[in-house]
Computed example of a mutant assay.
Amino acid sequence: MNQKTEIIEFLIKDEINNINIINFIEDYPIYYIEKIDDSVIVKGTSDKNWIYISSKSEEELKIIKSRLDNNDKNFAAIEEWMLPILTNKNKIKWRLSTMKLILCNDTYIVKPKHNVSDLTINDAEFIYENSDYKDFISIQYIIDRITNGISSCIRYMDKPIAWAITQDDGAIGFLHVLPEYRKMGYARDVTIALIKKVRDKNKIPFVHIEEENEKSMRLATGLGFKKDKVVNWFEIE
Rank of each mutant, 00 (worst) to 15 (best):
I161S: 09
I143P: 00
D135R: 12
Y133N: 12
M157K: 15
I142N: 05
M157W: 15
D168T: 09
G173H: 05
D168I: 05
H176P: 01
I165E: 02
I154W: 10
F136K: 01
I150L: 12
I154P: 03
L175D: 13
D132V: 12
I139F: 08
I142H: 07
V177G: 00
I150D: 06
P160R: 06
R145P: 00
F136I: 08
A164Q: 02
I137L: 11
N148H: 15
F174I: 03
S151H: 04
W163F: 05
P160K: 03
I154S: 00
Q167S: 11
W163E: 02
F174H: 11
Q140C: 03
Y141V: 10
I137N: 09
I150H: 01
T147A: 11
I146Y: 00
D135Y: 15
R155A: 06
T166A: 09
Y133W: 11
M157Q: 15
G173K: 02
I142W: 02
S138Y: 01
T166W: 03
I172A: 11
T166H: 03
I143H: 06
K134G: 04
R155K: 14
S152K: 05
F136R: 09
Y133G: 13
I172N: 03
Y141I: 12
G170K: 04
I161E: 01
K134E: 13
I142T: 05
I172D: 04
I142E: 01
I137T: 12
A164R: 02
S152C: 11
S152R: 01
L175Y: 08
W163A: 03
A162F: 05
A162Q: 04
D168Q: 11
A171G: 10
G149I: 08
I154Q: 01
G173E: 04
L175C: 13
A171K: 01
D144K: 14
T147W: 07
Y156C: 14
T147M: 10
T147L: 12
L178C: 08
H176D: 15
I143T: 08
L175H: 09
L175K: 05
I142D: 02
I143K: 12
D169L: 11
S151Q: 05
I142P: 03
Y156K: 15
K159R: 15
I137M: 07
M157P: 03
I172M: 13
V177H: 04
